[in-house]
Design a protein around this nucleic acid. Structure first.
Lengths: 137, 137
DNA sequence: ATAAACCCTATTTTATTTATAGGGTTTATA
DNA sequence: TATAAACCCTATAAATAAAATAGGGTTTAT
């Protein structure tokens, strides 16, 4: 299951995408729209900014805005940033690999093999679907 | 990520599958093989039994054993039993549906739509891959 | 008889997620 | 140039969920 953090991030990005023409959008506007605590959302937006998905403008009238085309923000990137691994097992994670400590030999583990397939199919979707796809109804 | 409970369950089923000819297998044998706490594993095996995947035999020489062909135990069933939903969002779960409380309208939510696709592709694998597939190397 | 194993319920521990708190810095604009 | 609006940072608390432990009762093969 995706964490609330990730869900909030996706909703925030969607909101920023929809209001892209209006320049910087205040945290407040987004947090009210989706009933997210202002401070919690702030942390998330900062992470998105550090990851070069968002830009920000300080001072009165400031806020956040997309600095990439929605088509250039794959969902996989957002999920990995806020949630970590997409894979169902650490031993098949591409970005957060760790051996499973229950498993003796990865190369002969049948569970491992199946989970690689699940990972690949999931990534096929999440790396190709972008914010743009979410924006269009 | 799959919980340890699910991983333990899969390993236990695999072990039981491999030693199917030997009749009832004691918890102890499995917990030693995979370094799982005896009591914790016991809980898991009981759940698997309640779900009609395992049978058990009491008394000296007793233990657990598969009561289905490995080909009749899809991985989706094991995961759902121990971990709950397979979907990435409650609002797209087939077996554990709940509305997302951040989301105003499910029918127009782009995130919802993508996650249905992820769910379907994941299930396509996990419902067709069975214990049998895990058993063969 | 008894030891081995099943069966059950409750509690504790640990980790993770979610949220809050509080304050400092920057900057547009009146 | 004061000030309000918004960014930025670190730390901590509260809530929830996962993992493990505890302890004891019941069944049954030998």
């Amino acid at each position: 299951m995706l964490s609330k953090k990730t869900k909030y991030a996706l909703h925030a990005l969607t909101y920023l995408g929809k209001h892209r023409e209006e320049g910087a959008i205040a945290i407040h506007d987004i947090s009210e729209e989706h009933g997210i605590s202002h401070k919690f959302l702030e942390n998330i937006l900062l992470e998105l900014k550090k990851a070069a998905m968002l830009g920000s403008k300080k001072g009165k009238g400031g806020g956040y805005y997309l600095i990439k085309e929605p088509s250039e923000i794959p969902l996989s990137k957002v999920i990995r940033l806020l949630d970590g691994p997409i894979a169902m097992l650490p031993c098949v994670s591409l970005n957060y690999y760790e051996p499973c400590d229950e498993c003796k030999d990865e190369t002969t583990c049948g569970i491992h093999r199946v989970m690689i397939r699940v990972r690949d199919e999931t990534l096929k979707i999440l790396e190709n679907k972008t914010l743009e796809d979410i924006l269009k109804e």
